[in-house]
Design a protein around this nucleic acid. Sequence first.
DNA 1: GAATCATGAGAAAGCGTTTTCTCAGAGCGT
DNA 2: ACGCTCTGAGAAAACGCTTTCTCATGATTC
Lengths: 348, 348
Amino acid sequence: MGRGHMARRNTNRRVGIADVAEKAGVSHATVSRVMNGNAAVDPGIAARVRAAAVELKYQPNPVGRSLALGKTDTIGIVVPDLANPTFQAILRGLSIAAAQDGYRVLIADSSEVTSEEAILAGEARRRCDGVVLCAPRMSDAELEELAPTLHPLVLINRTTIATNTPSLSVDYGQGIQELAQHLVTLGHRRLVFLSGPEHSSSNRQRLVGLDQFRKEHPEIELQMLYGGSNFDSGHDSTEAIVASGATGILAFNDLVAMGLLSGLHERGVRVPEDISVTGFDDIPFAKYTTPPLTTAAVPINELGSLAWRRMREQIQQAGEATTQAQDEFSPRVEIRKSTAAPALKPAS
Amino acid sequence: MGRGHMARRNTNRRVGIADVAEKAGVSHATVSRVMNGNAAVDPGIAARVRAAAVELKYQPNPVGRSLALGKTDTIGIVVPDLANPTFQAILRGLSIAAAQDGYRVLIADSSEVTSEEAILAGEARRRCDGVVLCAPRMSDAELEELAPTLHPLVLINRTTIATNTPSLSVDYGQGIQELAQHLVTLGHRRLVFLSGPEHSSSNRQRLVGLDQFRKEHPEIELQMLYGGSNFDSGHDSTEAIVASGATGILAFNDLVAMGLLSGLHERGVRVPEDISVTGFDDIPFAKYTTPPLTTAAVPINELGSLAWRRMREQIQQAGEATTQAQDEFSPRVEIRKSTAAPALKPAS
DNA sequence: GAATCATGAGAAAGCGTTTTCTCAGAGCGT
DNA sequence: ACGCTCTGAGAAAACGCTTTCTCATGATTC
């Protein structure tokens, strides 16, 4: 509970500037000046202050400093699902980059509950100096309304009309087309796209990319099946994939692909001999699946560290209009062993 | 910058209690009482205050509240490596459980730099209401010295002599013995343990467990090879494993096992026909490796959520001595398809 | 009608720190 | 020696909020 006129309780109270001031025989303003080096202080006085601080093991209270300075040196991030390795890697990239500038990261996981996102984002913003929205699932209209209230804000995998909100995007449409092209180049003519969550902006981009692909390759059969976004949903797609007769599979992401690889192995379907499988993202596990997974590599650590750089730019230019930075990453197709030419099957 | 007698700058300042007070024609203390419901306020006045708050879109400033209340509603966690899925899962478990009580989690990743840990822990503790140290790599002596300064503290995979520090542990020694026993039961006589990082407390427990295992099974050949703690190091162990002649492999963790599975596959060594491989932890990928991995399941989401419960107990009993809670989890061996009876090899 | 009691809202203090304002003391020039 | 200027440290205000203290007002009792 807060406190008014009551005498201060000393129980468990940590050492503050007032204690150091008393010990050194100076005012608390002087202690603050010495600790921060913000103004000239007589060297003899400064030495006394430092000795007192060391003796009392003084550490400044970050909350008091935050109130006085109007900043917290923390960044919030809202992720739709912290179980997703792509988001984990983005978090790690952001966390490491921000730490290098003395900032920490506060997590909010909406657990794919879209209605929670705006609430979590507002709350994170109030507690922090800025907020990163990672693949937000809210509608475009909601995002347009919310974005100005969150400044400084960095978006990952979404954009807004707002001219001062940096946005880091991956060209999922182009990536999925390149993966499809890879399969076609290998000779595949019957493809399936295992699509992801409906509210996922990156899924919509893949769908747009595949529409374009169909237009350019009318001779290719490209079916759509729902594959979700995790292992289990990929694994659960095994029967539908086998029934489809397709020889080339484009999974929504690496997790779906891994689940499918496992399901196909259980079913005795050989990858890539019988079916080729691709993923997306190139999470760290993708190299180590059996067989190692062909995928479109998204520089997910770089996304996190660039998100920090864009955030830092806004923080440092507080109050000034900034030129919006729209960064778009092109995924790079990483060809591994899960794709090969389709088997020549006897006519039946 | 802080500010003294200067007139308040209104630029970019968010709406505060003073603004609501002015709008409603009451004092800021009354606004605080209405927003918190802490004391009786005339219903008519309360309605005016609420209307003003809504009209001005007032949201309390968490920093001001934290200073007044002496709490931040955040928990810090220090992890040795945020790239490790076990730590990611612990973080997720902690984050979700704490969020249910209105707490957020602040991350500090020491990136396996042992000398950074104490500094990060102290800093996290000052910014937060408590701190969780996850598999800290510092020495026992350093931990004993640091622990009292971090109260309230929860330890994961370490213990201290301190009687008021809850500690959540996994009996790695027992788990590795059960895995070894599983291989022996299948008929394996030549085993290798791919050991993990030297500073890892859980690795030491496995070594102790395997010493015990050797005593109880003098007829079993059990070699030690260094296998590190990630994919690459597991993968890099492939040749040494093949050269060892062992038919049963105990990998330090699931990542090492996955890397090894991939390396063996590349080498044309069949799992489990030619070599059986086990992991540890049961990260979400373990079910989906090819073949699915036999492993010792650590309830890593439960570790995170129990860490929050222990933390919350300490926060709620502030200043009182608490009975130390030592929670120990027994790993559960999850038998999947990466282990089988050793092949009968022609004598050569 | 006066005295007493209860209640609720404003004044004030405080949480810990930063920084502006003020003033005392030292130094310099005449 | 006096006046002026400069410097540095203490006093004070502020950041935003919570809660204690104080007092005015209305109700109740005698």
